[in-house]
Design a protein around this nucleic acid. Structure first.
Lengths: 237, 237
DNA sequence: TCAAAAGTGTTCGTAGTACACCCATGT
DNA sequence: ACATGGGTGTACTACGAACACTTTTGA
């Protein structure tokens, strides 16, 4: 199996190898008052450039536990509604010095989560990122892509939305994460049919400029669920 | 960023940490003559149980390069038409002894690849697996699931099919990987519309029991391509 | 000429898009 | 009343599933 002694080539991984955990944490936030909200990433300022939050794996933790711990301890971010593996970045020269393999995670934080960050941390719009350390820009790009794709066939938006929301607000979240407009009325139909969102029976307050008060909806689950598993080639029946 | 000195908890990852690469290599193979072919995984026999092929990361390699090297050197499998990251398995107790994190890969081998294996290696039907080491059964299950899902919205079958094939043969490959029958005529229509397969203009030989000689098709690309990116919520226009 | 396998065509259901129209509230 | 946003209904399109029917070969 995998532990068999020496092998014939290419050195040995047991000396001078570091595994770091990096998290791409997204939140949809109002960056300007009275503007459409934007998708943002959590970054932390190191000496020269901005970087993704992360650190070393704990000896008694899985990687996802490490990711959660590092976000809580260093960033004071505790309301990560969804965390999933993104990818491993393993180019031997991705970071100078000791060989460092990055196991990366996507974290999603709802819009209504408290956001009290330490001084060196900040949210940045994904469309206006500062200069980033090492390959961190690639990692963010991969995370964005993954989230956008999953919005289409899973209930992943549960982790970006607040507990209760009008459909117009959910539509803005989709729009921010996808990068293009979505029709609010059709979004409701699709998510209802798939039993992703349910009506709560309550209604919200009407805005400052008038208008009908919106019905409030909620996600049926708060765990990732694939809602459209077979785009094609479904099993018979 | 991620390298900042000490942190407050849970030990340190720089001592006693091993990263292994494990590959779930699939091939669709005829296990019995005159039977439908079945999806098989490449396993290697260790002292007590069967295990996935793999080993340590080389110092100057990315993980995918390590995976390819280990398959070539130890298993003599060199025709891996597609290799992609599966997932990282990081439970601290997944393997006894030194902490071992497994970075896993999916490898796909076409049906027409030469299959000359070393003595300790063998192909096993995924539906009749022997007793497996550690968490290797979970890893295989995850790999199967991933491949089945991707058959539906990518051209991933290019890496399982031979260079040229009649549609009936491709249909058998899909059937083996998905676990249920697919309609051959509809499969052609779908894959043609998406420009995944193209007709080669050539025809094959008719079988031993008679029948019309089949047209031979080929995949348009031999690289993974997402063919059905937006199951729903497509961008406008 | 018959069976077997391949290929063509047709019907049907359904999901998703676009968009028009109706409803409820504040000013 | 009217502007503003929310909600409902309807027509259209397109893709995929199912299946019948036709074509080409070997025995």
């Amino acid at each position: 199996m995998s532990a068999e002694g020496s092998d014939s080539s290419a050195g040995d991984g047991s000396v001078g190898l570091r595994v770091e955990v990096l998290s791409v944490v997204f939140q949809v936030r109002e960056t300007q008052p009275d503007t459409a909200p934007a998708l943002c990433v959590l970054l932390t300022k190191s000496s020269d450039a901005w970087a993704l939050p992360g650190g070393d794996v704990g000896a008694a933790e899985t990687l996802s536990e490490s990711a959660r711990r590092l976000l809580a301890d260093k960033m004071d971010v505790r309301k990560v509604a969804h965390l999933e593996q993104l990818s491993v970045f393993s180019d031997p020269h991705r970071v100078p010095g000791i060989r460092t393999i990055a196991s990366t995670y996507i974290g999603l934080v709802p819009t209504d989560a408290p956001a009290r960050l330490p001084a060196e941390a900040a949210w940045h719009e994904v469309d206006a990122l500062p200069s980033l350390a090492y390959d961190h820009a690639d990692i963010i790009a991969a995370g964005r892509h993954r989230v956008a794709a999953k919005l289409s066939y899973t209930n992943i938006a549960f982790a970006l939305a607040p507990a209760r929301f009008p459909m117009s607000e959910l539509s803005e979240i989709y729009c921010a994460a996808l990068g293009y407009a979505v029709d609010t009325t059709n979004l409701l139909r699709i998510l209802s049919r798939r039993a992703v969102v349910v009506s709560t029976g309550t209604v919200g307050k009407t805005g400052r400029t008038g208008g009908r008060p919106p019905a409030l909806y909620a996600f049926a689950d708060n765990e990732l669920r694939v809602t459209d598993e077979f785009a094609t080639l479904r099993p018979p029946m």
